[in-house]
Design a protein around this nucleic acid. Structure first.
Length: 855
RNA sequence: GCCUCUGUGGCGGAACUGGUAGACGCGACGGAUUCAAAAUCCGUUUCUGGUGACAGAGUGCCGGUUCGAGUCCGGCCAGAGGUACCA
């Protein structure tokens, strides 16, 4: 009598059994013996309160790797924790009056419960949250060590300032140049802030990223571009009239195109350049212009996309190569103070931003690079700068040179004139870590009027956040706390105040991977690190990963980590998002998937019966109401179904669209698998037969195991899923056999149970139990296919005539090339196309294809 | 704006290093089983033309390299991620 598999009952039973057996605890190096280690880590979640499908996908993928490694004999570390500091907790405090700590820990409890239902093979004994005082205390100690090492400093830096709420805004809180709550036009304001010297490691971070061969190529390219090493020229332009005070030697610029110096038509200063500030002091128009620039906010995107704005200072500088020429000095909103020297020379003909600026303000445009096929007399630049290769012209001593040669000659000339020198510059800026917020790691320093900046003594760490804080008004609660910041100087015992900035939450996630390996034991950290497989969203491809790489180096250099390479993640996989259709009511409001239904192809709103629109497929997000709650799916179908679905269909690196029917299909497949095991007699497994049907079935099983193994190793889980589908169909068909293949069916089922472990671990245990297998299948070894069963002796090859498929032949693999050619020519469907034609040649690719070329 | 990536049936996607385009799943259609239904099982399903064997077209668009291109090269178009205070 066929039975149904009951996911809810089976899943909770197996999870309890795994817990009782402490199955997924990482072994210590001593316990592990000869077993190789594998550290599998997924990016830990921000505890928003609810698990979403993106988490399910991320952790399901990591679990496939962890379970597969474990089955292959590795000592696996697979930990979980919480990226628990951050703005949403403060927003909740402001909106609902709940304390950020309470809100966060409640969210963690809720999400931990949800996560546990997924049956992930996690070592929960290492769990922590970054808002735990033990964690942020260790982070404060690390900060002080980095400070001692000279990796930390303070400098003035700009923030988005909301003049109504009197608070600093994050870039995402600036919407169209206005504060998200107050609606006030956002200003830029300078504050003295803390920085990490990530640029000290710029060269090494760039050099090493090339060697991370188990990282996606695109992430390595993005990191390299972000660091942005460029060789150029730093030089000064001397003023042609009276120089402004303090700038007697001229204005310093940096350029990567010294070859285009003869095409220079203006100098542009950043609105924040010291000279700009000096000129603005006595100039209302310029002051006004600076304010206009500042109203764009601080994000690079906003600054770059803003229309080009300029202000003519009236000053002029001398062209270095031509005493007859002077260039006007402008202030331009697209010149960033943070890059190079905060000043450039503009060559409109060969730079897109410069041409837009020059056309707007009527500045000269002189082309100096001639494209290979252009004529010097007729070549001109209108609205599109020419940035390609070519030969220099209109350029005096550089005429006729290629760009690279011209760059060298120009730099040499400037150097001989004593006006500057060749210089390497980076796009990468030092990492600003100050945040004027409460829910973050307090920066452990004290400001003393007499002693300056004094570290909080190690004995006083962790320096805890005060619990009694009010969020009734915007601004930094730490700063306005009645007592917390008032203290005495550890050095002179005089009155002093604490730093009230907290650390960027990117700091918290920059070293948690080391803390998981061990809270403080250097040997244990050395054993586990680097992480063998890191899995997370591609949205972290630049910042988080770069910061973590910096921290690994900094920790190594302050003696916190024995990791010579400085690379925390040996293998990286970046997964895509989970998306879903969006739905809108007639009035334009977003609707949840559960609020709409489809009848005869038309969507309507269930509550009202009114028609609804289907919108584009987008990343699941609360604002668009297109989220699917994993809890509801687990409730309805079980965790295995949810895991299976998010791994099927889409390649892991791409987005996956959640569909209800897809989930139902996955649930059906769970039952189909169970029916294979349920359909076997409850007897001991006989040895597989040697008849043709048994051999064919065994070949299918052994090939399937090999293919699944390969696709898991290549992170192609969707292909592994397809392979299991095909295999199950073959096993299912064999149920009709008269009994000769029973041994082969048992063998296939046993292999299948073990191959299911990474994907549907609960079902795999139930299947294993039904087979009478030893212990937990979660602890069983991966099946080993028999090489003899993986080979076929004949092969089917397509036959093409002039590249079009006209037939196929099945031949022995060992057949010689000319015999294959003869067989192809003789194949009736092919021969019809060859009749009366002249065969010019025949290409035979053994085992793949035959292509006959006819006239 | 800039950096990176993606684009294949009605839908999600497969196709190893340039070698049979559409595996596998979803949906749809047809059938079996059933008193009936649910569940399950089997089959068909890129498009166009043809009763049919079959023929032609086809991997975002335009062009190129090759015996052969979804795959390589050049140029476009569209969408996504990042853009340093969302995480």
């Amino acid at each position: 009598m066929a039975t149904r598999y009951d996911p809810q009952a089976a899943e909770s039973r197996w999870r309890a059994a795994w817990d009782a057996a402490d199955l997924f605890r990482a072994k210590s190096p001593a316990e592990a013996g000869d077993a190789p280690k594998a550290y599998v880590l997924e990016m830990f979640p921000y505890p928003s309160g609810r698990l979403h499908m993106g988490h399910v996908r991320n952790y399901a993928m990591g679990d496939v790797v962890a379970r597969h490694k474990r089955a292959n004999g590795y000592n696996v570390l697979h930990p979980m924790g919480w990226d628990a500091f951050g703005m949403p907790a403060e927003n909740a405090a402001m909106q609902r009056g709940v304390h950020p700590g309470k809100w966060t820990y409640e969210n963690i409890a809720a999400m931990r419960a949800q996560l546990k239902k997924l049956g992930l093979s996690l070592d929960w004994s290492r769990e922590f949250a970054t808002c735990d005082p033990e964690y942020y205390g260790a982070q404060q100690a690390l900060f002080l060590k980095m400070m001692e090492k000279g990796l930390v400093y303070r400098k003035a830096s700009k923030v988005n300032w909301d003049p109504v709420d009197n608070t600093v805004l994050a870039n995402e809180q600036v919407v169209d140049g206005r504060g998200w709550r107050s609606g006030a036009i956002v200003e830029q304001r300078e504050l003295t802030q803390w920085f990490f010297r990530i640029t000290d490691y710029a060269d090494d971070l760039l050099e090493q990223v090339r060697k991370l061969d188990r990282w996606p190529e695109k992430v390595r390219t993005m990191q390299a571009n972000w660091i942005g090493r460029s060789e150029g020229l730093q030089m000064r332009f001397e003023f042609s009239g009276d120089a402004p005070e303090g700038f007697e030697s001229g204005v310093e610029i940096f350029t990567t195109r010294p070859d285009t110096l003869f095409g220079a038509s203006f100098i542009a200063l950043s609105p924040d350049h010291p000279l700009t500030l000096q000129l603005a002091a006595g100039n209302n128009a310029l002051t006004h212009f600076r304010a206009e620039c500042a109203a764009v906010g601080t994000s690079e995107e906003a600054i770059e996309k803003a229309p080009k704005l300029g202000f003519d200072t009236g000053l002029t500088v001398q062209h270095p190569f031509d005493p007859e020429r002077t260039l006007p000095v402008w202030v331009a909103n697209f010149v960033l103070m943070g890059y190079g020297t905060g000043a450039i020379f503009g060559c409109p003909a060969h730079d897109q931003r410069d041409i837009e600026f020059a056309r707007k303000y009527g500045l000269d445009v002189t082309p100096v690079v001639l494209p290979p096929d252009a004529a010097a007399a007729s070549f001109s630049v209108e609205d599109d700068a020419y940035t390609g290769i070519g030969t220099l012209f209109n350029s005096g001593f550089l005429d006729g040179l290629a760009i690279d040669d011209a760059k060298r000659q120009a730099v040499a000339k400037i150097e001989s004139l004593g006006l500057g020198e060749g210089k390497v510059n980076y796009r990468l800026r030092d990492w600003g870590v100050s945040r004027q917020r409460y829910w973050g790691c307090p920066i452990p320093v004290i400001h003393c009027a007499a002693c300056g900046i004094v570290p909080v003594p190690a004995s006083e760490l962790p320096l805890r956040l005060p619990d009694d804080v009010a969020f009734d008004k915007p601004g930094n609660p730490l700063d306005r706390h009645p007592t917390w910041k008032h203290t005495t100087c550890p050095s002179c015992a005089g009155k002093a105040v604490r730093e009230t900035d907290t650390l960027d939450t990117f700091v918290d996630s920059s070293w948690y991977w080391a803390r998981f390996a061990s809270p403080d034991d250097m040997a244990e950290r050395a054993y586990w690190l680097p992480v063998d497989q890191y899995v997370g969203g591609v949205e972290h491809a630049v910042l988080h990963l770069l910061y973590a790489r910096f921290f690994a180096r900094a920790m190594r250099d302050v003696g916190e980590l024995d990791l010579p390479s400085g690379e925390p993640f040996a293998g990286l996989f970046t997964q895509g998002m989970v998306t879903h259709e969006t739905y809108k009511a007639a009035n334009g409001d977003w609707l949840e998937p559960s609020e709409v239904a489809n009848k005869d192809g038309a969507w309507f709103e269930i509550a009202t019966g009114a028609p609804a629109h289907v919108g584009p497929i987008e990343k699941m997000s609360k604002s668009k109401k297109n989220t699917v709650d994993p809890d509801a799916i687990i409730q309805a179908f079980g965790a295995d179904t949810a895991r299976w679905f998010v791994l099927s269909d889409s390649p892991p690196e791409r987005d996956v669209e959640w569909t209800q029917s897809g989930a139902e299909g996955a649930a059906r497949f769970v039952q189909r698998i169970w029916s294979i095991f349920d359909g076997l007699p409850e007897t001991a497994a006989p040895a597989p037969g040697t008849d043709a049907a048994s051999i064919a079935l065994r070949k299918a099983s052994h090939k399937a195991v090999a293919a699944i193994d390969k696709t898991i190793n290549e992170f192609r889980f969707n292909s592994a899923v397809a392979g299991i589908h095909e295999w199950v169909s073959v096993l299912k068909k064999a149920e009709g056999d008269t009994g000769a293949t029973l041994g082969a069916r048992f063998e296939g089922a046993s292999m299948l149970a073990r191959c299911l472990v990474p994907f549907m671990p609960h079902l795999a245990e139930s299947c294993w139990e039904r087979l009478g297998g030893d212990g937990f299948v979660s602890a069983a070894a991966w099946p080993t296919p028999d090489p003899a069963l993986l080979e076929d002796d004949s092969v089917t090859m397509a036959v093409q005539v002039n590249g079009k498929r006209r037939g196929e032949i099945t031949v022995s693999k060992a057949l010689a090339k000319d015999a294959v050619e003869a067989a192809a020519h003789a194949e009736p469907d092919v021969a019809a196309f060859l009749e009366g034609k002249d065969i010019k040649k025949t290409i035979v690719v053994p085992g793949r294809i035959v292509n006959i070329v006819v006239a």
